[in-house]
Design a binder for these strands. Structure first.
Lengths: 216, 216
DNA sequence: AATCGTATGGGTAGAAGTACCTAGGAGAAG
DNA sequence: CTTCTCCTAGGTACTTCTACCCATACGATT
C-alpha cells in the first residue's frame, strides 16, 4: 500500500479540473487523477482505489449519480463527494440516498472543497451550509409524519407495547418474556397489527415499527 | 409594524459584539441591539420582537440554551441562531432539540454569519458545514462515533454491498436477485460478516446494519 | 341477555434467517 | 509455483417469523 493517497476528480470542463487540481495538490501526500466523464471516473476508481472521488453531477456518458450508484453496488471503498450547481432539494435528497458523503455547491467552492475533503477523510459528512436546511427538513419529515400514520391510532394498548418491543429488535420470545405472556399471544398481536396496517411479507412489521417508534 | 428589522446579538465580550454589529449593519434596513448576558437578551427579545437573535452559548446569568428554551416556551416569534465555539455533538444535538434555526461556529464566522442570517430570514436552517455531520448521524439515529466500529474496515466489498441491502430490510432472496448471485452466497456473506463483527442471534446483523449504514 | 372488542392461549404450515460445514475458481502476494 | 484471500455455491440442521386457522375469558355496549 502506498503512503500517498489518491483523489479522483471528474468534471467535463478542463478549466474546472485544473483549478481543482491546483487547490487539492496543496494538500500533503495527495495525488490527483482527472476524468472528463463518468465512465472514465468509474474506471479510475476501480483501478486506483482512491480514498475520495470528487464528482460533478452533470457529465457525459455516466453522470455523477450513475457513478455513485455503481460505486455503491460494487462496494468500492471510496468516499464520494458531489460538486455541483444544483441546489434543488430533490437532487440533494437523491444524493443522500445514493450514499454520498459530501455535497458542495460550486458557488462556494475552493475553501469549502478543502474543508470537505478534510471532513470526509475522517469519515464524517460535509454539506454546503445552504443545503443543510434540506437535511433538517428531511430529518423531521422522517421523525414526525404524524398525519401519515393515522393507522397507528387503530392499535390497542397491548399491540402498541408489542410494537415498541419489535422496534427494539427483540425476538418474539423475548417480547413474550418481557410482557409475561405466551409467544403465541405475541404472534397474534403482530398479526393483528399487520392486518390493521396492511403490512405484508418479511420484515414489514419490523420496518414499520422502527420508522414509527417515535410516535408510540 | 416597522419597515426596519431588528436583530439582537448577545455575547459577553464587547469586542465580539462590536465586530458583529459592524458586519450586520452592512445589511439594509437592519437595526442591531446588543446584550451582554442572557437576561438582557431575553428582555430585548420580549420588548422589541426582533426577527433574529444571535446568541453566544456561554453567557452570564442566562446562557444561550436558557434563552432559547424561554423563547420556545413563551412562543416568542424570533429565530434563534447560536454562535459558539462548541463543536461537540452533544451540544449541537441539544441545540437542535431546543429549536434553534442556525448553528455557526466562531472559527468560521464573519461571512458565515451573513449567510446564516440570510437563510434564517427566509425560514430556512443554516448549519456550519463541519457540524452537518452530526445532523446526518442524528438522522440515522446513531450516537456511536465512527472509531467504535473499526470492525467495519474488516469487511470486503461484497460484504459491504450485502450489509447495505440488509440495512434496507431486504430479504436474502431480494439481495441475491439484486446482486445477481445465489441466495447461498448471500448466506455466506452474512455469516462472514457476523464472524468478523462477533454478532450472534436473531436480528443481530440487521440491527448492526441499520445502526451503521451511514458509515458504509 | 346478546354482541362486540380486547387480551389471552393454541395448532399448523411454510417462508425466512441463523449456524456450521465443504469446496472450486480467480486473483494477488509470497 | 505455492499460498492466501475473496467470491462463489451447495448441504444440513435448527430457530425465528409469517399467515392462516381456532378457542376461552373479560368488560363494555346495546
Amino acid at each position: 500500500m502506498n503512503e500517498r493517497r489518491t483523489i479522483v476528480i471528474a468534471d467535463d470542463f478542463p478549466l474546472i479540473r485544473k483549478g481543482l487540481r491546483q487547490v487539492i495538490e496543496t494538500l500533503p501526500e495527495t495525488e490527483v487523477m482527472e476524468a472528463e466523464n463518468g465512465d472514465d471516473a468509474l474506471r479510475l476508481i476501480r483501478e486506483h482505489h482512491p480514498v475520495i472521488a470528487l464528482l460533478d453531477i452533470e457529465m457525459p456518458k455516466l453522470n455523477g449519480f450513475d457513478v455513485a450508484k455503481r460505486v455503491n453496488d460494487e462496494g468500492l471503498p471510496v468516499s464520494v463527494i458531489f460538486l455541483t450547481m444544483y441546489k434543488e432539494e430533490q437532487v440533494f435528497n437523491k444524493a443522500m440516498d445514493t450514499g454520498v458523503k459530501g455535497y458542495v455547491l460550486k458557488e462556494n467552492a475552493i475553501t469549502e472543497v478543502l474543508q470537505c475533503i478534510a471532513a470526509v477523510s475522517e469519515g464524517k459528512y460535509y454539506l454546503s451550509p445552504t443545503i443543510s436546511d434540506f437535511l433538517v427538513r428531511r430529518n423531521s419529515r422522517l421523525s414526525s409524519p404524524a398525519q401519515d400514520n393515522i393507522g397507528l391510532s387503530l392499535l390497542t394498548p397491548a399491540e402498541r407495547s408489542v410494537l415498541k418491543l419489535v422496534a427494539s429488535m427483540k425476538t418474539n420470545q423475548q417480547i413474550a418474556d418481557e410482557l409475561t405472556i405466551s409467544i403465541k399471544t405475541v404472534h397474534n398481536h403482530r398479526n393483528h397489527i399487520c392486518d390493521k396496517l396492511g403490512l405484508r411479507g418479511a420484515h414489514a412489521l419490523l420496518k414499520f415499527a422502527i420508522e414509527n417508534v417515535s410516535q408510540l
